[in-house]
């Protein structure tokens, strides 16, 4: 397989994986909201989140494989899972490696969900928040295409999407906390 083909595949699948990861995150963050619509039930959104995450992993796998198979630069198989073992662009590749590690852990924990304690699953799943900025930094640090306007525009759109979803999530958490804080003040006020 020609090095150029591998390189183009790496770049393309990397970008698509980043977009899909963004979509996965936004869908996942959105499942916590308590607002339900008949036309868009939340169980469907959760289902979509799971399916998109799987597609993300597929593109990520291809991205990782082609990047290692491309001998134009020396990354090495170990760098897939072990950070800082690549001889090429050690730091930026390491970021990608960390992303892969995190997502692998999330994937495995979800497959074993019924067999591990609920808290463990949730803890690992929270790690997925880490994968996204790491992936984004990896893209900017390594990405050949990132200085193009369209690519930068896409990245900014991703940032807005995730930040927006997070803001809504935080607002929801605050509202929930307010609902239970009212109860705490009731407890304090009632002494027999």
């Amino acid at each position: 397989m020609s090095s150029s083909l591998l390189w183009y595949t790496t770049r393309a699948t990397g970008l698509v994986a980043l977009l899909l990861l963004t979509l996965t995150l936004v869908l996942g963050i959105g499942t916590a909201n308590r607002f339900s619509m008949r036309s868009w039930p939340r169980f469907a959104q959760q289902d979509l989140h799971k399916r998109v995450s799987l597609i993300t992993l597929v593109f990520l796998a291809i991205h990782v494989l082609t990047s290692v198979m491309d001998t134009y630069v020396n990354i090495g198989w170990a760098a897939i899972l072990l950070p800082f073992t690549s001889r090429y662009d050690s730091f930026w590749v390491a970021l990608g490696t960390v992303g892969v590690d995190v997502l692998a852990a999330v994937a495995v924990s979800s497959m074993l969900r019924n067999r591990i304690p609920a808290r463990l699953w949730r803890g690992v799943h929270w790690l997925s928040y880490l994968s996204w900025p790491v992936a984004l930094a990896h893209a900017f640090g390594m990405g050949t295409d990132m200085n193009q306007a369209w690519a930068t525009g896409l990245a900014i759109a991703c940032i807005f999407a995730v930040v927006g979803a997070c803001v809504l999530r935080v607002r929801l958490a605050v509202a929930e906390r307010r609902r239970t804080t009212n109860l705490t003040s009731l407890r304090a006020a009632s002494q027999v």
């Binding site: 308590r34 339900s36 939340r42 169980f43």
Partner: peptide
């Protein structure tokens, strides 16, 4: 109170 069960 996520409510997925009631949706399904």
């Amino acid at each position: 109170a996520y409510g997925y069960c009631a949706e399904l």
